[in-house]
Nucleic acid binder design. Structure first.
Length: 861
RNA sequence: GGGCAGUUAGCUCAGUUGGUAGAGCGCCACCCUUACAAGGUGGAUGUCGGGGGUUCGAGCCCCUCACUGCCCACCA
């Protein structure tokens, strides 16, 4: 604990320098021990301010971006707390999901194989680089999950220690991890509730599929990437005719999956073909030719092949035209076997088709493309004529291709059975919900709107992965032990959380698992957003504790990054709507990004991140917080170490000025000097202004005002003016010493939301004793009613304004003459307006003392 | 292709309802001054992205163009 210092301590008793590192540890422990940030569960909703803290993905990487946005939220939390709110400020860890799986796979060099039995004695060491060159070891799902939990536990500790070090005023009793029992219970209940409301469904249909991770993904997780591709011009024949036409495709390898051909209904070139059947080259497969206004006659050759499935439009045509499916690319991204001449692969020349396809089967997309282009280039492959079906050399183009945001190969549309949440039918409600939320900055709402308006797939929530919350469903098996997916068995609320792979459904016994007429457990887990979209309810314990829920939900503030509006914000709004027809929060604050000097977002994958710990060592937590507080909401910030230096300088100045102020002795008196009151008047304006700014989340503007006041008005002017008077020991001295102390007391509280460590340190020297030894962070925010009561406040700060102006003019004069500011001047001429002359007498004594001017000659301006 | 931001001093950024362009850093000069040399005082630095318009007056309002970043769409 900090050594306690008597009021009006001589300067030399106060430590000369501020040791930020020891102060950070000391005060973090103090706040924890004194429960300074604890939420009071007994208070009514109206007195609470609830924050839906983003649970960071604990994937091992800590970077300066984490510090940036979390500090911004902390400033708002601290302000609300000092404004009298009972602040609910939890911290969660988003630990389940792919980032953790990937980390475990690479750290331990393992892969999960759900078919393997659990090995309770598995001991894994972190392998050497040499061992990592061998094939990865396969382990059971349960062993794999245990490894994930081991890794995330370590990561969570590192995150927690960073967050404590930067002084987040989190109530750590409210900590959660999205894989823990409580979160699994809430996520699974969410599913049960949606199931009951018929807002979830399962369907076997073409879904977005990542062939590397071998899982379905949702529309929100897509990313377009610009890739080099090529238009391949391929000749098709027409059945019972000598006609031919040429399609253009970037995916020639899908030729064996061709299920149709389409052109625009108004395209005169192809009008005559509509309704006929096209014959594909190599496979001689007859497919219908139909018209569609989705075809752009300008693009390619204006006629194209529909495959199962090249893209979402193919899926659309497949459904619309009731085409057959000729899915050939399997879940691993390789072409599966097919028998040509049999349904669904008819062929007018089955033998040749099979011969061609045998050269494709087993290949991945890239290899298959190469092979098929090679085949199409052979003479005689054209359905009409004797040339190659590939009518000309491929034309290179750049086009955007859909990827899973974490994936490395383009997504495929693959038909699989997946669970979905209905969203498309709620679009208009989803848009209306957004209008009930205040967006900061306001223009960010447009991103939510455009995403919602353009949404074209329901939310695929099932993932074929391992480290996640299991979908709480079992299925009945028929007499052949085939699952009856439409006969889902759901657990009761009080059974949750469950794992259908190890838990048994009600009224069944474990011996019936996977047996004829028994049951089978759902293997899939939820999309991680399915759990994190419940973060407000995870905190409010819906539906388990309705009293708590009502006191916390809807929350007051959701802070988050603008890149996850379409995921986290969107899904959270959706869940609150579907579960309770409510909005999850009143406000959403979107923080900007940290960008590198080239204005690129800092991210681990780009390798341009900065680790916070060395910066914290060099500049101290308060200085780092100062940097974060400088950026407005929504605005991206260039990483610039100069700002840390400015922050450190502010901390030092605050420390030194406070040492001076608190070492001044004063006598009992209620006398106030006019100039002192004038200065307080200016401070009063600052107090009102900053409150307004902070209430609307404009922490950066408020800081700039406070800082400006502190440097220009307080340390550079007022303090210099009264420095000598303060030592006199009379009534006038008492007035300025009380003014200094009051100002400091107010300024420290204003700064405390930004610089909690230095402010607590200074507060502990003396002010804490006046208030029953409370932390500065438990003090009320400065207010006109409390801090200025019993002080005869003037109506304006004109006297101080004049003093500031004259003091600066005299300093300028001395500097111009290369004189020390302490140099004496015999005479100085002041040009004053009439109103200035009227108040000059109140400014004169301190001005004279501070400037050492023997005589002022006042002339009219 | 549609949309949202941004473009202000060498750098990073403020600029409230239209009223004589700002801060910090950097640079230069001066000052060892009893809270602070991890300091202080002062100085120089701008066609406010280009063009047009409204207005007595535009960094701010309107139109237009350019560039940067992002969001969304297209994806044969």
């Amino acid at each position: 604990m900090s050594k306690s210092i008597a009021p009006n301590a001589p300067l030399d008793l106060l430590p000369k320098h501020f040791d930020s590192k020891t102060a950070e540890t000391r005060w973090s422990e103090y706040w924890e021990q004194k429960e300074v940030y604890n939420f009071d569960f007994d208070k009514p909703r109206s007195s609470n301010f609830c924050i839906d803290t983003p649970p960071p993905t604990v994937s091992g990487s800590l970077h300066i971006g984490h510090v940036f946005s979390y500090v911004q939220t902390d400033i708002i939390a601290r302000f609300q707390r000092m404004s009298g709110k009972n602040v609910f400020y939890p911290m969660g860890w988003d630990d389940n999901g792919l980032p953790t799986e990937r980390r475990v796979q690479s750290l331990y060099h393992v892969r999960c194989d759900p078919a393997l039995p659990y090995d309770p004695n598995l001991e894994l060491e972190i392998p050497s680089a040499k061992e990592k060159k061998d094939r990865a070891r396969t382990i059971s799902r349960k062993n794999f999950i245990e490894l994930c939990q081991r890794v995330t536990l370590e990561d969570e500790k590192a995150f927690m220690s960073l967050f404590r070090r930067i002084g987040l005023s989190v109530d750590w009793r409210l900590e959660y991890a999205t894989i823990n029992d409580h979160c699994r219970r809430i996520a699974q209940y969410s599913f049960l509730d949606l199931f009951e409301k018929s807002e979830v469904y399962q369907v076997e249909a073409p879904c977005l599929w990542d062939v590397d991770f071998q899982t379905a993904v949702a529309q929100a997780e897509l990313e377009d990437r610009e890739l080099e591709g090529a238009f391949h011009h391929i000749q098709f024949g027409v059945r019972d005719s000598k006609d031919q036409f040429v399609i253009a495709t970037t995916r020639p390898e899908l030729l064996p999956s061709c299920i149709g051909v389409t052109a625009h209904p108004d395209d005169s070139r192809y009008k005559g073909l509509i309704g006929k059947e096209a014959i594909s080259p190599l496979f001689s497969c007859p497919v219908p030719i139909f018209a569609s206004d989705r075809v752009d006659p300008e693009k390619g050759t204006g006629i194209l092949m529909v495959c199962s499935f090249g893209d979402q439009t193919d899926v659309h045509w497949w459904k619309e035209q009731k085409l057959v499916s000729r899915q050939l690319i399997g879940k691993t991204g390789r072409f599966e076997g097919a028998a040509f001449g049999e349904e669904p692969f008819p062929s007018l020349d089955a033998e040749t088709a099979q011969n061609h396809y045998d050269q494709i089967a087993g290949k991945n997309v890239k290899q298959a493309r190469q092979k098929i282009v090679e085949l199409l280039s052979q003479e005689g492959t054209a359905p009409v004529g004797k040339g190659p079906a590939l009518t000309k050399a491929p034309q290179k183009i750049n086009h955007s291709v859909k990827f899973y945001e974490k994936g490395e190969r383009p997504l495929e549309f693959i038909s699989t059975r997946q669970w979905f949440v209905s969203l498309l039918k709620h679009k208009s409600k989803m848009l209306a919900q957004a209008d009930q939320i205040n967006w900061h900055p306001d223009y960010m709402k447009a991103r939510y709107r455009s995403w919602t308006e353009n949404l074209n797939l329901d939310w695929c929530i099932s993932r074929q992965r391992y480290f996640g919350v299991p979908i709480p469903v079992w299925y009945k098996l028929d007499a052949q032990a085939k699952p009856l997916f439409e006969q889902a068995i759901l657990p009761a609320l009080d059974q949750l959380p469950i794992d259908p792979m190890t838990d048994c459904p009600p009224s069944y016994s474990e011996s019936q698992r996977d047996q004829p007429n028994g049951f089978t457990g759902e293997m899939d887990v939820f999309d991680t957003w399915f759990t994190s979209s419940m973060s407000p309810q995870i905190s409010s314990h819906w539906p388990l504790d309705s009293k708590r829920h009502e006191r916390i939900f809807p929350m007051d503030l959701r802070p988050q990054g603008h890149e996850i509006i379409r995921t986290w914000a969107f899904y959270t709004i959706a869940k609150a709507l579907l579960h309770e027809e409510k909005v999850p929060w009143k406000n959403i604050a979107l923080s900007g990004w940290i960008v590198d000097p080239h204005r690129k977002k800092m991210s681990k994958s780009k390798g341009n991140t900065i680790t916070p710990s060395s910066l914290l060592d060099d500049y101290g937590a308060d200085a780092i917080r100062y940097w974060a507080a400088n950026a407005r909401l929504g605005a991206d910030t260039a990483y610039d170490e100069k700002v840390f230096k400015v922050g450190r300088r502010l901390v030092t100045k605050l420390y030194n000025a406070s040492r001076f102020v608190l070492s001044q002795k004063s006598i009992e008196s209620d006398h106030w000097e006019s100039l002192d009151l004038s200065f307080l008047c200016r401070l009063k304006d600052l107090v009102s202004k900053t409150r307004v700014e902070l209430e609307s989340f404009n922490y950066a503007q408020a800081l700039s005002e406070i800082e400006k006041f502190f440097w220009n008005s307080f340390t550079d002017t007022y303090l210099e003016l009264v420095k000598l008077r303060a030592k006199k020991g009379d009534k006038a001295a008492s007035s300025c010493v009380r003014t200094l102390r009051l100002s400091l007391k107010i300024l420290l509280r204003l700064f405390s939301v930004y610089l909690p460590f230095i402010c607590e340190e200074i507060w502990s020297w003396e002010f804490n004793k006046e208030n029953g030894r409370r932390s500065i962070h438990q003090m009320p925010w400065p207010s006109l009613a409390n801090d200025f009561k019993d002080i005869p406040m003037p109506s304006s700060d004109s006297q101080f304004e004049l003093a500031l102006k004259l003091f600066s003019a005299i300093n300028k004069h001395k500097t111009g003459l290369s004189l020390s500011l302490m140099a004496e001047l015999d005479e100085f001429e002041l040009k004053l307006s009439e109103s200035e002359r009227a108040i000059f007498q109140f400014v004169l004594p301190d001005l004279q003392a501070a400037t050492k001017v023997k005589e002022f000659k006042v002339v009219p301006a």
